[in-house]
Simulated scan of single mutants.
Amino acid sequence: MTDTPPDSLIPYDEIVQDALRAVVGRVLGQVEKDGLPGSHHFYITFKTHAPGVDIPRHLTERYPDEMTIVIQNRYWDLKVSAEGFEVGLSFNQIGSRLVIPFAAITAFHDPAVDFALHFSAQVDDQQPEEIAAAENDPIVKPVEDGSNVVSVDFTRKK
């Protein structure tokens, strides 16, 4: 008898990832409605070439893989939908509109309360070494630094 669990026919990793990305959507939806409460602010990291991402060319040239934005004092026109959000931000004093699907997000952090969510990247955006690692069983690593960080790192099997 083998100790290896059978492959699941239920995509638990995708379901959990979608649910945690919905947390980001719900938080941004509240901010869209009421503004940022207290000292809350967000660092949101996303894949710049993920499907549905729409950002100015100078940003994709500067950040060819991932980019982190800050939603704090200087943002405008935050609009949240079921699929993602769009927001106005300034880069080098140039106003820009960014459209970011929730599926493109790889990290969400609110430093005011030390809360963070980390998401695995999509396999097609990864380097060959990462793809080889993604073919193995999912790895879940607890964060042991005493913070309120939730780290979810599911990978897809080929």
Rank of each mutant, 00 (worst) to 15 (best):
N136W: 08
S39N: 14
D137A: 15
D7V: 15
K141G: 07
E61S: 01
R97F: 05
I69R: 01
E66P: 03
R97M: 13
F85P: 03
A50H: 05
D114Y: 02
P142F: 11
D65M: 07
P6G: 01
V149G: 05
E14P: 02
A103C: 03
D145K: 11
A50S: 08
F46S: 06
D65N: 10
P37V: 13
E14S: 12
F115R: 03
M67S: 08
L20E: 10
D145Q: 12
F85L: 06
P64S: 11
L20V: 07
E144G: 08
W76C: 10
S8M: 11
Q126I: 05
V24S: 04
E66V: 11
R97E: 11
A116E: 00
A104E: 04
V152A: 08
D13C: 11
V149P: 04
T155Y: 03
R21S: 05
E14A: 14
L36T: 02
Y75T: 00
A19E: 12
A116D: 04
Y43K: 11
I131G: 01
F102L: 06
D3P: 10
S120N: 10
A50R: 02
S147I: 10
L78S: 09
A116G: 06
S96G: 04
V16R: 01
V150S: 02
D65R: 12
W76D: 15
A104Q: 01
V24C: 06
K141C: 12
K158L: 11
D110S: 07
S90M: 13
R97S: 09
L9R: 13
D3H: 14
I71W: 01
Y43R: 11
E144V: 15
L9H: 13
S120V: 03
H118S: 14
H58Y: 13
Q30T: 10
T68V: 12
E66F: 08
H40P: 00
F91L: 05
I105V: 12
P37F: 09
V23A: 02
D153V: 10
N73W: 13
I100T: 04
D124P: 06
P6W: 05
K47H: 05
G29Q: 05
V152E: 01
D18P: 00
G146S: 10
A19P: 00
G146Q: 08
V31N: 05
G146E: 04
V123D: 08
L36C: 07
D54N: 13
F85M: 08
D18K: 13
S8Y: 07
V87Q: 04
A82K: 15
V150W: 01
L89P: 01
F115V: 07
V150N: 00
E86C: 08
I105T: 04
Q17V: 12
Q72M: 13
I15T: 12
P5C: 01
N92F: 14
D124I: 08
M67F: 09
L89D: 05
S96T: 11
V87P: 00
V53E: 01
G84S: 02
H49Y: 09
H41I: 06
V113T: 10
A107F: 07
I94Q: 11
F108W: 10
D65F: 09
R26C: 09
P138Y: 04
A22I: 00
L117N: 02
